[in-house]
């Protein structure tokens, strides 16, 4: 990777915002944080969030609700989204890993790919762990992988030093055209390794996650343990909604004038009883415990890891925050590791 010195990340942001619709996570002043459009004239300070935003980048590509096609009684009309070139500025390594995961899942999906191809991803390394994160254990961060971003921002432990900017793709390289940046002589590889070690130390070993993954793959967990967890699952769909790698959707047909209809797809959740229920009434995941087991097997199962070359869990901890039953990733893995 090429590395440049960047006196102000805001300069890069303004440069990219000239040619793209640029999004960054901003506080809403009410305790919330959202991806918001930032104009080229906006020079307010770029401060990478200490915590991952409530919503990952998932919905930029896999929309929570979107029209797939219309039918007017005689003919089908596709409804591919209209896209404009866009930049997601300041993505953490975990969320970029999740985008890479979704890229594989939706490799052949034209709706997803239309949006994805129009997007430049600007990642940012984390110098410190967020609360409850464990990217260093599932190998999704804190350093942004070269393959998962177009540009990577590297903040410095020394706040007075210039930021570094790593170019991770052709598209990233092209996007810098017109921006003069000095080449960095610093040993950024060593610096990133040191940052990584620092975050790993802050995250501690989290043995329950490590042990839980082993137990889960060994099939050593009693059905009763899963059912006890299942009793605490309200089926709210919060975890699957905020999970950056969850990719399931349901079709939704809306009937219009006689003989016409529209098909949407909407985010679905495998924690719903109806998710796998078949027309006969048979349900392969009939109990709540089976559904909880199935969900976590998708996140930590060796088979999925082999297929996607990464765990389905990127260690962001969002499920811990939204689960009313206290069975987000830490709640589950503690009980699973003990059983």
């Amino acid at each position: 990777m090429h590395a440049y010195k960047l006196d102000q990340p805001e300069r890069l942001r303004a440069h990219l915002a000239l040619q793209h619709r640029l999004y960054e996570v901003r506080d809403d002043g009410q305790g919330g944080q959202h991806w918001q459009v930032v104009s080229a004239q906006d020079f307010s300070a770029f401060e990478p969030a200490a915590e991952p935003p409530p919503f990952s980048a998932k919905s930029f590509f896999f929309a929570e609700r979107e029209l797939l096609f219309r039918f007017d009684g005689g003919q089908f009309y596709s409804a591919l989204p209209a896209v404009v070139p866009q930049v997601l500025f300041g993505l953490h390594a975990c969320d970029l890993q999740a985008v890479a995961y979704q890229d594989r899942f939706y490799a052949a999906d034209p709706h997803y790919q239309a949006r994805r191809r129009a997007t430049l991803l600007v990642g940012v390394d984390c110098l410190h762990s967020c609360t409850g994160g464990f990217c260093s254990i599932v190998d999704s961060g804190p350093a942004v992988r070269e393959q998962s971003a177009d540009l990577i921002l590297l903040p410095r432990q020394d706040a007075a030093a210039d930021w570094l900017l790593l170019v991770a793709s052709e598209a990233g390289h092209a996007a810098l055209r017109g921006l003069r940046l000095p080449v960095a002589a610093d040993d950024w590889q060593a610096e990133r390794s040191a940052n990584q070690a620092c975050v790993a130390a802050e995250q501690e070993p989290q043995q329950e996650i490590v042990d839980g993954i082993v137990s889960l793959n060994d099939g050593r967990i009693a059905a009763a343990t899963w059912e006890a967890l299942g009793l605490r699952c309200l089926g709210c769909s919060g975890c699957t909604t905020v999970c950056p790698t969850c990719s399931c959707y349901a079709p939704r047909d809306r009937l219009g004038a006689p003989d016409s209809m529209q098909r949407e797809r909407v985010w679905d959740s495998c924690l719903y009883q109806g998710f796998q229920k078949e027309a006969s009434g048979h349900n392969p995941s009939a109990t709540s415990g089976q559904r909880v087991q199935r969900f976590w097997s998708h996140k930590f199962g060796d088979g999925f890891k082999a297929q996607f070359e990464a765990y389905g869990c990127v260690g962001c901890g969002r499920c811990d925050r939204v689960c009313p039953g206290g069975i987000g990733v830490h709640g589950v893995m503690q009980r699973v590791a003990q059983s």
Binding site: P54, L234, G235, C236, S237, G238, T241, R321, V322, C323, P324
Partner: peptide, 10 residues
């Protein structure tokens, strides 16, 4: 406290 139920999410 940053959570919702199934109805809220829908």
């Amino acid at each position: 406290q940053g959570q919702l139920c199934s109805k809220g999410w829908a």
